[in-house]
Amino acid sequence: MEKLRKFERVLEIVDQNNRQASRLIPILQAVQAEYRYLPEEILTFIATSLGISPARVFGVATFYSLFTLKPKGRYHIRVCNGTACHVKRSMDIYNAIHKKLNLQPGKDTTEDMLFTVETVNCLGACGLAPAMVINEEVYGQLTPERATEIIEDIIRKEENHELDTHGA
């Protein structure tokens, strides 16, 4: 019933925005908050209910880098590659995480849907460079080793959580 609950939520979001086409961006934001990505059939549904074409909705959803049409992992890692971070070798951090999670170019989400790793152009935390954000949490003054440790911590935490739920 989880999926049904989400769809109900989509209906609510569309209604709260009075089915106004001009509210498309806030609607997409709210829907993405619910699904962590924008599923194709939901976008078609939104287009229908707002009376605009699916091609237009697709255009808006692909224009803004904030929106994603691919499912994202539970931990969304964004490594800053703005100027300050870049000169402090942020790509080393990105590469270290990629290596740790066994990801390749073009594949930025782990098989178990736990992690998605992306770069982002400036988090506005240049004083902490090089920096990254995992979901809402900011990590600064990173080294490749420190970044790998953070990932390992999360993996350990998840494993324990698995054990806990299965043990219960």
């Binding site: 909705v57 697709f58 692909t62 049409l69």
Partner: peptide, 16 residues
């Protein structure tokens, strides 16, 4: 058809 993606990647294509 409509514009999709942005910058140098922009194309005019059908939905999705």
């Amino acid at each position: 058809i409509d514009f999709a993606y942005r910058g140098a990647q922009t194309v005019v294509i059908p939905s999705f």
